[in-house]
């Protein structure tokens, strides 16, 4: 459904040249929640805005349902809708209902079709009792729900959400997670950009981590977890550890001393390094009380990926 190939974008401003995106490629299919993760300035927004034609890339191609967005933008836009920059996508001086009619009209929706879509999305997002309230008077959570409701009105197969849970309370975040999963279930492609690791863990089918404009990894969340699980261990030593051994093991992780217990928190750069680690342990024969595989949450995995890339 969505194919991005070798996307490149360089910004030039007052003599400064910033390569925001350096050859990003990926494809995503219907029924999938595809997440783009990356630190600030990684190129997430440029990628999303390029897909929508809001930023013109220098080179590469973007196809939505086989239509090249650079060559036939208006036609390609019929297959996509988006919520960008948190809750700033609604007209604060219009009511919820007026917002839906205005933005729906902008997408060519009206009459019975618009009315039935308004009812459907208002029920899905839990805003049907707020239809006559001014958007500016709603809480941030409800404004975001309204922004998503507006994006859902045209019933496009592709929905792009840029930081959909930014600044939301726990309840609203949970609601939005449910809606995202619901959308994927009914066959939509949801392309997310977020910093919210809980959201990634709960809704993403695939995660693309980007840094400095390049793709570092593109995997399923379970694969990323498994990959890092096989690289993260805790080795608890029984008794003291010689300085010589500490020196030899320092490349594999950090020593942590808690009371009398000495623990090596191992972070392997690749799964193969475990053999080198065991070779050292076998030759030095320290007393080990336990070796445990470490459970990592998604935030730690993300940090490891980005740090690993920067090193």
């Amino acid at each position: 459904m969505l194919e991005v190939l070798n996307l490149r974008k360089t910004y030039r401003s007052r003599g400064k040249v910033v390569e925001a995106v350096k050859g990003i490629s990926f494809s995503a299919k219907l029924g999938e929640v595809f997440t783009i993760l990356g630190p600030n300035g990684a190129g997430k927004s440029t990628t999303i805005k390029s897909i929508l034609g809001l930023v013109l890339p220098d080179s590469g191609s973007i196809h939505v349902n086989g239509i090249n967005i650079m060559k036939n933008r208006k036609k390609a836009l019929r297959y996509m809708s988006a919520v960008l920059e948190g809750n700033r996508n609604v007209h604060w001086k219009l009511s919820v209902k007026e917002n839906m009619i205005y933005f729906g009209g902008m997408r060519g929706l009206g009459g019975k079709r618009l009315r039935s879509r308004m009812e459907e999305v208002a029920n899905l997002l839990g805003i049907s009792d707020k239809m006559d309230q001014l958007a500016g008077k709603l809480s941030r959570g409800y404004q975001q729900r309204l922004a998503i409701a507006i994006a859902l009105l045209p019933d496009t197969p592709v929905i792009l959400l840029d930081e959909p849970t930014l600044g939301l309370d726990v309840e609203s975040s949970v609601e939005i997670r449910k809606v995202i999963r619901e959308l994927a279930k009914v066959g939509k492609l949801v392309l997310l950009s977020t910093h919210d690791m809980k959201l990634v863990e709960n809704v993403a089918d695939r995660v693309m981590v980007i840094n400095k404009g390049r793709v570092i990894t593109l995997k399923k969340p379970s694969e990323l977890k498994a990959m890092f699980k096989s690289r993260s261990y805790k080795i608890v030593f029984d008794g003291s550890v010689s300085e010589a051994l500490r020196e030899k093991l320092s490349d594999f992780g950090k020593f942590v001393e808690d009371g009398g217990e000495i623990t090596l928190v191992v972070n392997l750069k690749s799964a193969d390094e475990i053999y080198d680690l065991f070779d050292i342990l076998r030759s030095e024969k320290p007393t080990i009380s336990s070796i445990e595989s470490e459970e990592l949450d998604f935030e730690e995995i993300f940090m490891k990926i980005v740090r690993g890339d920067e090193e």
Binding site: H91, K93, L94, S95, E98, I101, Y102, F103, G104, G105, M106, G108, L109, G110, G111, L114, L134
Partner: peptide, 20 residues
């Protein structure tokens, strides 16, 4: 196009009422 005009009319009237 008719729906664009209708939606835009709602915006124009809405803004006029709230910025009376």
């Amino acid at each position: 196009m008719i729906y664009l005009i209708r939606g835009t009319f709602i915006r124009v009237i809405g803004e006029m009422r709230r910025y009376l």
